[in-house]
Write a protein that binds this DNA or RNA. Structure first.
Length: 507
RNA sequence: GGCCCGUUCGUCUAAGGGUUAGGACACCACCCUUUCACGGUGGUGAUACGAGUUCGAAUCUCGUACGGGCUACCA
């Protein structure tokens, strides 16, 4: 019988959640939901120096906006808590000490200065970053070479120390990555990673293994940047719990910016968001724009992310979250990194704006309008407007330029575009057209257009030449949806008023 | 430097030994539209290079080049 699928996303609360992070969540989520499993969010806050206030809450808000709700987390509870590693601190030491006892790890008392000295002594052009490994460990201060009594006494006196893994020499550690297949490493070139820090906190390496075990994680998906440390984790599994219990690994390809790994800087430099939602650094006050605030709908954001490194093998590209859950397969995730393309992202958003009913995003558009000084009072009218112009909008703020005139009558009508062909008979046409409008009961674009054309014909004027003036009167410029549809949405009274006031200004 | 991973149009990708190497974004042209868009049709454009295996290679193998990641008491 196979175990219930359990996956986790394990972010550090150090700042905003960028594209790559959200995609990692997404792939975890899709896999879990498809397998009927659980999606867990575990907060990896073992580095107190990097902790940033508000970052944890921010992560959950972003996930909520994306519609990727965890089954278990610091916010959602669960049977495997606590879900914050700092609150699990006490559970890690015993595993580290167990490793020391078995001879797989050792105490190291080297100070920061001693480590620096070792590194600068060994640093050469050919070896720019010397490691604490089998070649140097017997020259350092650790329990491998110190007499047992001295080690005991150092420990007794609470001498600051760490516990390091003792990397075996000449072993090949290999495993099968779900995405990459067989990957192997020679342990001789891997350093003796710190497992337990001087402050008693575990490093990522120890914590991830212990918690994945304790939380019964079955599949571990993470970014490709973790691939080089995978052998450390595999060895820890082997020493501590046995490899049979180890989760299946999948190292996801990176999302690249225009030059290398996508960074916050790229966003500022190239003018696109890299975070899910706006993130304000509490220390500097610096705000980094998010996709939400840039005017993306979550459906598009998630869809776009899913397709960055995966596709279902067909030519379909637009998928809802539900469809993704159904079609996703981790094996089809690509090996190579994908460069983020903002134009393509916008295209997804455009598709989703067209597809979604305006009720999904009207609140956000309302806020955009409010910021421009237009308060929306009539929701029914508002939705009608959004429905009419949504095909022309790529990002939510575009609604403003495509529909502000439904809420603000033009003060001055610029007749310049039609001046050359303007004459008294055309002006007369609009007077009589406007008069006829009063008696219309069937206020529909199609009937308005029919009436308009009939009247134009009997006045002996080409209807086409009257359409632009009509548009100018209703919206104030050369823009907007088809003119009679504007009139329909505007309503009888407002249409008549706008034509009247425009005629007063007409030459 | 060492280790690991990767490489199909500018970008995201399809094609798992036999296709005129397909689609999408972007770009260009035309059409639709007496506004601005949307939309429609078409076009430009790719298997990094070199060997090998094979009747046949984008696809398998090796090498080279290039790109990326890691190399902290950060994750």
């Amino acid at each position: 019988m196979s175990k219930k699928v359990r996956v986790r996303f394990a972010p550090s609360p150090t700042g905003g959640l960028h594209l790559g992070g959200v995609r990692t969540v997404l792939y975890n989520y899709l896999f879990a939901k498809q397998q009927g499993g659980d999606f867990i969010v575990r907060i990896e806050d073992t580095d107190q120096s990097r902790y940033v206030a508000g970052a944890e809450e921010y992560i959950f808000e972003t996930l909520k906006w994306c519609g990727l709700q965890p089954d278990e987390s610091t916010q959602h509870g669960g049977d495997f808590g606590p879900y914050r590693q700092s609150e699990r601190k006490e559970s890690y030491r015993k595993y580290a000490e167990d490793l020391v006892e078995k001879g797989f790890a050792y105490y190291a008392f080297d100070t920061g200065e001693e480590l620096d000295a070792m590194r600068s002594r060994l640093r050469t052009a050919d070896n720019p970053s010397p490691q604490y490994d089998r070649t140097v460990r017997m020259d350092m201060r650790n329990s491998l070479l110190l007499p047992k009594e001295e080690v005991d006494s150092l420990l007794q006196q609470d001498t600051p120390h760490v516990i390091r893994i003792k990397m075996p020499e000449g072993e090949t550690v290999s495993f099968t990555d779900v995405i990459r297949g067989e990957v192997s490493f020679d342990t001789s070139v891997i350093d003796d990673k710190v497992l337990l820090k001087a402050d008693g906190m575990p490093t990522y390496h120890l914590a991830v293994v212990v918690d994945d075990y304790l939380m019964q994680i079955t599949h571990a998906f993470r970014g490709e940047e973790w691939l080089p440390s995978a052998p450390v984790h595999i060895l820890l599994w082997r020493y501590l719990f046995g490899e049979e219990a180890m989760p299946q690994w999948a190292h996801l390809p990176l999302i690249l910016g225009p030059s290398g790994k996508l960074s916050k800087r790229d966003g500022a430099k190239y003018g696109f968001p890299v975070f899910g939602m706006n993130w304000k650094d509490p220390k500097t006050g610096e705000v980094t724009e998010g996709f939400k605030e840039a005017g993306f709908v979550p459906e598009a954001f998630v869809n776009m992310l899913a397709m960055l490194g995966w596709n279902d093998g067909t030519e379909e590209e637009v998928f809802s979250l539900e469809e993704l859950v159904q079609k996703f397969s981790i094996e089809k995730v690509h090996k190579g990194g994908a460069k983020f393309d903002f134009d393509k992202a916008k295209w997804f958003n455009h598709e989703w704006i067209k597809k979604l009913p305006p009720t999904n995003y009207k609140l956000q558009v309302k806020n955009i309008f409010a910021a421009k000084g237009v308060e929306i009072m009539d929701d029914v009218y508002f939705e009608k407007v959004l429905e009419l112009v949504k095909d022309r909008c790529t990002l939510l703020p575009d609604f403003w330029e495509h529909s502000f005139f439904f809420f603000k009558a033009p003060k001055e009508v610029d007749f310049t575009p039609v001046l050359a062909k303007w004459n008294v008979s055309k002006k007369d046409f609009f007077y009589s057209f406007n008069k006829t409008l009063h008696s219309i009961n069937d206020w529909k674009a199609s009937s308005l257009e029919t009436l308009f054309k009939q009247l134009a014909e009997s006045a002996g004027i080409k209807a086409g030449e009257l359409q632009l003036p009509m548009r100018l009167m209703l919206v104030g410029g050369k823009f907007g949806p088809p003119v009679f549809e504007i009139a329909e949405v505007l309503g009888k009274a407002e249409t008549i008023t706008r034509i009247e006031s425009a005629l007063e200004q007409a030459p």
